[in-house]
Design a binder for these strands. Structure first.
Lengths: 337, 337
DNA sequence: ACTTGGCACTCGGGAACACAGAGTGCTAGA
DNA sequence: TCTAGCACTCTGTGTTCCCGAGTGCCAAGT
């Protein structure tokens, strides 16, 4: 039903359309790509492809344009991810290597990706749930206030001010800090609630109210930050492109954490290094856009996701190459620190 | 030269043009605002106003449109800041009151302002330079690594990993922490360099390399964060508006910290509660946009600035009211914490 | 001296129209 | 199964025309 030549025609259509942004006709196609057949033959193939729903024409007697289904086939079977050039690789490496802390890594990553792909880049902060406690710190502020600082193995720091139910002098604070760390050090964040559940009971009765207060704030912190922060960059790249769904909707989605989250693909796949490509109407919202995303993280476990968002008409091989490469490098950086 | 009626005409032109986005002609003007004169008279006044450069016509025989100079006069002399409604005030108050930490305050503020003005809101993080050290914390990570955490009186937290030149056991770390805090507690961030300059000399010789390393990272942190972080929200509001300078440039500026900084007004004025309005070509870059900004901060000293950015054709009285109100509320919140 | 009504003039924008060019579908022949 | 040819159908563009909104100016009125 779809012989090799038809597939070649589809590939050619996608490539030409992506590069020219104009419906592509049979003559131009037969010339530019050296299919060794006449325009008429190409037309027949096009008719078949249109019949199957892979391409469409904006109006009678214009050239053909790929449909979402056409792009899908192209991505799945007709293209291969295009690796970056050596220069690009080196640029990535040196740029990311300069990061001083987790915030900086994320900021640099998202900018890098935006610049590399000339699209909007989106990066999710490494998830707390997969990381472990490296240290818990209690810093006395006033007599009834302490600052709770939680440091994870990914370098992430969360802090909260805790209002204590009674005055607690510094030495007691230090003691409690030791107790907390003894209990939580190295503990996976998901296990923290279980780990601390019976902690008050194991302490002298006079410490219980204070510890309970601190723990409730700690748990609250974990819950609140569960749905992770997402940052984006490169919104300026939207200016040129045209979206069926209107620029406004795209910009709104970018500022809406929840929407972005779902677009990136909330379900972390079991094979983190796989590239996810969602094309046009395959997206839950924002039907006019495509998303290329993948997981990243130190080692095997996927800490979070990153990707780019752009018009359906994008250069998928190049974009996929950039996303994959950046994800690898940032994973390396995170593993090293 | 500019009598009262001419000023009234200018005001009417600005108001009509802002609300309709169409050049306003003499007839419509004479009708809608009850100037009790004929269109012909209005035309004469318009000719005078145009002569003086306050208004202009897009092409011969179209209505008039205010120039930057016209808006300037309007803002300075013809309008008064429009206060918010009671409902809006309450909404602001409750929304900001829910913030849990400084990050949250800033995020909420910028979103609130964007929603309120239907423009792009811009908020600068409270400057380190005006705040003071509340606590310095050293957290051992490995034997040769500690995390340096700096907490300021505005609730801001900066952290850095420090690579020490030698192995340092925890008790020594605790000692150094005490020394640092004794020296720096309550110290203004600007004075930190002076304060610690001779610190190594006052310590036993064996501590000096370690302390020197820590201090260099500390100072580095202060310097690096000197030019402060700026966040924005409401980019979606740009979608409808048209900018002479192209949407792309505006979006690029928004992601460029340095540019945003200068737009907000790098020189903090001596009277922080003053609203700064920069109209069109008065802006260093982005000549097509206007900016309404003001300082905010706890008490008298201006900690940072916030404002909105929009097309030159904006409703200045309303925008100014919103910016002023939000600045006041966020100042209150910061003062209370 | 200012205001007003009248009038001619000037543009911009929309409607109507023609036309060239690109592209298609179809059919007949190799 | 491919190819050549041909008639057909669109879009986009350029042209023309006209209407209406708006102006500038002048002369008359208060």
């Amino acid at each position: 039903m779809l012989d090799d030549r038809k597939l070649a025609v589809l590939r050619a259509i996608v490539e030409d359309y992506v590069s020219t942004n104009e419906p592509v006709g049979s003559r131009a196609l037969a010339e530019r790509h050296n299919l060794k057949v006449s325009p008429a033959t190409v037309r027949n193939d096009m008719a078949a492809l249109e019949e199957e729903g892979y391409i469409t024409q904006p109006h009678t007697s214009a050239g053909r344009v790929p449909t979402d289904k056409g792009y899908r086939l192209f991505v799945d079977r007709l293209s291969q991810v295009k690796p970056l050039s050596g220069a690009e690789r080196r640029a990535i490496e040196t740029f990311l290597a300069g990061a001083v802390d987790l915030d900086d890594v994320v900021t640099r990553t998202v900018r890098l990706l935006a610049q590399l792909t000339r699209q909007v880049a989106v990066v999710q902060y490494p998830t707390l749930t997969r990381s472990t406690v490296r240290h818990v710190e209690l810093v006395p502020l006033h007599d009834r206030r302490v600052m709770l600082v939680l440091i994870t193995n990914t370098g992430r720091v969360e802090q909260r001010v805790v209002e204590l139910p009674e005055v607690v002098e510094d030495t007691r604070i230090a003691h409690l800090r030791a107790v907390l760390n003894a209990s939580l050090d190295g503990c996976g964040l998901l296990n923290v609630p279980d780990q601390v559940a019976d902690l008050p009971e194991r302490l002298p009765v006079e410490d219980r109210p204070v510890v309970a207060t601190i723990l409730s704030v700690l748990l609250e912190t974990l819950v609140e930050r569960h749905d992770e922060k997402i940052v984006f960059a490169g919104a300026a790249n939207l200016a040129g492109a045209d979206f069926s769904t209107g620029l406004r909707d795209v910009l709104e989605a970018l500022e809406e954490q929840v929407v972005l989250m779902r677009l990136l693909g909330e379900t972390s796949t079991d094979t983190p290094s796989t590239l996810t490509v969602r094309i046009g109407s395959e997206n839950p919202f924002l039907r006019g856009t495509s998303i290329v995303a993948t997981g990243y993280g130190s080692g095997d476990n996927e800490l979070a996701r990153l990707g780019v968002l752009g018009p359906t008409r994008m250069d998928y091989p190049v974009t996929m190459g950039a996303v994959r490469a950046v994800a690898r490098y940032v994973s390396q950086i995170l593993a090293a620190s």
